[in-house]
Design a binder for these strands. Structure first.
Lengths: 218, 218
DNA sequence: TGTACATCAGTGAACGCGCGTTCACTGATGTAC
DNA sequence: TGTACATCAGTGAACGCGCGTTCACTGATGTAC
């Protein structure tokens, strides 16, 4: 099998080193947060001198952007994989939770405190849309619910984010609340705001998912 | 009127300078995020030399902790004031939203990405409990809702955070979901994740509040 | 298979920077008699 | 009201540090004939 983008040994080596740089970067972020990420520290950990990294990333900002991109990509893949095996909204929820718990700092790089002035490049926002599309598909497949909330009228008229998607306003609403509610419990849990409160965050998450998908409603 | 803690001119001056330091600190946080906060930069903006600030704060960390404390205090006061004038959960929701929108970075200092390894001092977590207590009061006053979710059984047995509060499990549940859902929409909105989507975040927030307090439920 | 050349990964020195923090000191403000 | 002293706010120099980034260079790897 001849691949079109067959890699020369040098290309393979480059890809490998780039990967290792990112791995060390994630370790550093997990330890001290994204704002403490330092190229020199990464290089030191890899046994290289600082300037060497400039062969692989043009600047610290480019590295961080790449990490953000990878994080989005990873979430999109996770969510898509879950949708393909079950197509159930519930499964999407647990996939999201699993992804978040696996690496809280990666989660925060996507959904945490924004850096004032930073704007993600277009290809990253495209991945975000991709995630919403998967969510919309799953919500459109859900059986209809109670009476339409007034907010759904508004959504029907302001659906830029679902342009081209056939889902009805009720599904848009569901997708949005799915997103915001799960994010609400997850981010508070990951930030440690539940510690010491006594209850099990997993059960709160499950309760939100239940409320979102059925039992107490349908 | 003779106050017990009458301030000498020097004490008043000190308090004044401390306040200005914090004001400049907030400006800086709003501009570049909390991780970029620098004592030297604050001093420069005040027309002082860097070391002068050490008369007022023992270290950069102490200043940040104080800002976090003030943020919590401010939220607790806001929420309490709302509870005292209306005692309505809905009013609490809007008070929270108003507080968050007034200064997003202050909101993120409380609810945003945690710094790995940082632990808030006890008096700050005490303020957090105070906020939850106000919320619990308001939720306990709400009329009973649909059938008890299974999660409420769990909550009835794990209510450390509501120790000493007479609210029934259903009220605990409501307080928790109030907190997580509003935080979900708010933090996504403030982080800019809704920009370009087309709909009005205020209406989504209102819809969540509606769902939480009645119309489509009661 | 061997030689000549081009590519490119990585080094080490250097740049300027701003940071938190310490220290010995000056000068103004307040206190006691 | 005036003098002697203590308190304390703020300064300027200095410390060591680690950062991002540039540059000229070395040496290894790959390519062409």
């Amino acid at each position: 099998m001849v691949s079109q983008d067959a890699k020369t040994p040098r290309e393979r080596y480059r890809a490998q080193v780039r990967t290792e740089i990112k791995e060390r970067a994630w370790e550093q972020i997990a330890t001290a947060g994204a704002s403490a990420l330092s190229l020199n520290a990464i290089a030191k950990r890899m046994g290289m001198s600082g300037p060497a990294l400039y062969r692989y990333f043009a600047s610290r900002d480019e590295l961080i952007t790449e990490l953000v991109r990878d994080a989005y990509r990873s979430l999109a893949d996770t969510v898509r994989a879950a949708a393909e095996t079950g197509a159930d909204v519930r499964a999407l929820g647990y996939a999201l939770r699993g992804w978040a718990l696996a690496d809280p700092q990666r989660y925060f790089l996507v959904y945490g405190t924004p850096v004032p002035g930073y704007h993600a490049p277009d290809d990253i926002t495209a991945i975000a849309s991709e995630i919403m599309a998967v969510l919309l598909d799953a919500c459109a497949a859900l059986p209809p619910d109670g009476p339409a909330a007034p907010f759904e009228t508004h959504l029907g008229a302001h659906r830029d984010w679902a342009a081209g998607h056939p889902a009805p306003p009720a599904a848009l609403h569901r997708a949005l609340t799915f997103w915001t509610r799960l994010h609400g419990t997850l981010s508070l849990e990951l930030a440690g705001h539940f510690t010491g409160m006594g209850f099990d965050p997993a059960q709160l998450f499950a309760a939100e998912l239940d409320d979102l998908t059925g039992p107490s409603r349908g």
